[in-house]
Amino acid sequence: MDKKLIFEKVDHTLLTQTATWEEIKEICDDAISYGTASVCIPASYVKRVKEYMKDRMAVCTVIGFPNGYSTTAVKEFETKDAINNGADEIDMVINLGDLKNGQYDMIEEEIRTLKAACGNHILKVIIETCLLTKEEIIKMCEVVTNAGADYIKTSTGFSKSGATFEDVELFAKHIGEGVKIKAAGGITSFEDAEKFIELGASRLGTSRIVKLAKNEESTGY
């Protein structure tokens, strides 16, 4: 697969707690250079990044991140604030406690609330697959579909592990029409990225793919 096609599906990501403006600016510049789908950054940087990037690149941020246990009202406020600051895409984390309690209706309602807050902006729903059973993953495919979200996303990258091929295969079998897949966390090679895309992922949350490309260019490989 042409690397350009892989870059076009990458949400070039920097979500570390210590991220500086110089580091954020670097990933913005790299995103433009390599033609990624978006940059995914902390909400505190959204306004500054939008002013810096203007309309050259989609700006994505995270809500209820990384644990997901903020109240729905807080997540709704975060979402509206991020969009007012210029965010084009929102990646929200579900309340995993609600999931483990079997309160799927509450999760669905929360997703609906945040989708309403997003309006025409893209909403991706992070379900943190590494903490779920196969049955819970399948159920969340149903919930995310029913709630009208745009994407179901595997992972925050801040838990036990990131995306697996099995996760994406399961998503592809059980999501409804109109819902896309984002694989995130632990995507360490172009080969892995290509495999995730072949299995059905439309987006890849990663910082390493662009770093690999830059390293290859600098070393001549």
Rank of each mutant, 00 (worst) to 15 (best):
M1L: 11
K4V: 12
K9E: 02
D11A: 05
D11Q: 07
L15M: 09
L15G: 06
T16E: 13
Q17D: 13
T18L: 09
T20S: 15
W21I: 07
W21V: 06
E23F: 06
E23T: 06
E23Q: 15
D29N: 13
A31E: 01
S33A: 15
S33G: 01
G35F: 05
T36Y: 11
V39Q: 04
P42Q: 12
V46R: 06
R48P: 02
K54G: 02
D55W: 09
R56L: 11
M57A: 06
V59N: 07
V59A: 09
T61K: 11
V62N: 06
I63N: 02
G64K: 09
G64F: 04
F65P: 02
Y69L: 08
S70Y: 13
T71E: 07
A73P: 00
V74W: 04
V74F: 11
T79G: 08
D81F: 09
A82E: 06
N84L: 13
N84R: 14
E89P: 02
N95L: 07
N95G: 04
L96C: 05
G97R: 12
G97N: 13
N101C: 12
N101H: 12
G102V: 10
Q103N: 15
Q103T: 02
D105H: 13
E108T: 05
E108Y: 01
E108I: 04
E109A: 13
E109D: 13
I111C: 10
T113P: 03
L114K: 04
L114E: 00
A116K: 15
A117T: 08
C118Y: 06
N120P: 02
I122M: 15
T129G: 05
C130L: 07
L131P: 00
K134V: 07
I137Q: 10
N146R: 15
A147P: 00
A149K: 03
K153C: 05
T154N: 09
S155R: 05
T156P: 01
F158T: 02
S159Q: 11
S161L: 10
G162A: 08
G162I: 05
F165W: 05
E166I: 08
E166T: 13
E166A: 14
D167A: 10
V168N: 05
L170T: 15
L170H: 00
F171V: 08
A172V: 01
I175V: 15
G176I: 11
G176Q: 10
E177R: 12
K180T: 00
A183Y: 12
T188H: 14
D192R: 09
A193L: 04
K195D: 03
I197R: 03
I197M: 15
L199A: 09
L199V: 09
G200Y: 05
T206R: 00
S207R: 02
R208M: 05
L212M: 13
K214S: 02
E217N: 11
G220Y: 02
G220T: 03
